[in-house]
Every structure is written in C-alpha cells, then in structure tokens.
Amino acid sequence: MSEGKRPGGLTALAVLNFVFGGFGVLALLALVALMAFIGVMADSGEEGQEAAREVAKAWEEAGLGVFYAMIAVSAISTILQIASGVGYLKQKKFLGRTLGNAYAVTAVIGSLIPALMLASPEVGGGFQIGTLVGLIYPILTLILLNTTFKHDFIN
C-alpha cells in the first residue's frame, strides 16, 4: 500500500455513503410523515381505507416508543453515514474508521428493531428477506473497515 494514496474501494465506499445517506434522509422524512398519518387515521371516520387502517393499527399496537426509537436510530445512523463518508475521503482515523464502524453497528440495530419488535409485516415487522437486503451494506462496511481498509486511515 502506498502511503496517503486512497484506494478506489474506499472512494467507492464514500460515494455510496453519500448516496445511501441521501436516501436515509428521505426515509427519515417519510417516517416523520407517517407519524402525522397515524394521527390523521386515528381521527378519520372514512370507510374504504382498510389497508391504511391496518398500518395505523399495527403502529398503535407496537407502541409509540418503538416508533420514536426507530426515528432516533435512523437519524443517528444517517448522520454517522454522511460524516464517515467525509472521513473515508480524507482517510481520517476518527471521522472515517471510528464513525464508519459506529454507523454500521447503528444501521444493523436500526434494521433489526422493526424485524424483532414489530409483529406486523405492514409496518416492516418480522424478519423477512427484505431485512437481509437492508443489512447487506452495513455488514459489508463493518467487514471492509476492519479488514481490507484497516490500514488506510492514516490521518
């Protein structure tokens, strides 16, 4: 390894962090919008919205604590993801490797919260193969930061 020269894989990882981080921000906004949706549904007396009602009911059964926990973990994970992306580009030990690992662990927890704490698939509950899709990137990040790119954080 040449000192100071950033490997292409680390640059790719940084770009992916920014892209997925952007999607994370959008997902977070969608989750907050869902909160308002639950309130509207609770007050609504209209018929013919059975599927939407089921979603609202499933959230009510799961409890608001889970919902707030999901929002908090998603927000922390997204912030860490974008910050560590900057760290990868600058090859910073704390901003890159430490925050990158922190992001990966937080994202794994964030993926497992709905899988383990929500029973209804309407709100993303239960362990599905979709959960595995969500786990791919954080687990890859965790593996790569601690093996392949372990010695590339030199600043």
Binding site: P7, G8, G9, A12, L13, L16, L140, T148, F149
Partner: peptide, 14 residues
C-alpha cells in the same frame, strides 16, 4: 474489493 470495482460488483450482485 480494494480497487472499488469488486466492491460495487459485490454490492450489486448481493
């Protein structure tokens, strides 16, 4: 994977 292309391929294929 270090080169970047392997990483993208791994992510895309999985």
């Amino acid at each position: 994977v270090r080169g970047g292309i392997g990483l993208i391929f791994l992510l895309l294929s999985l």
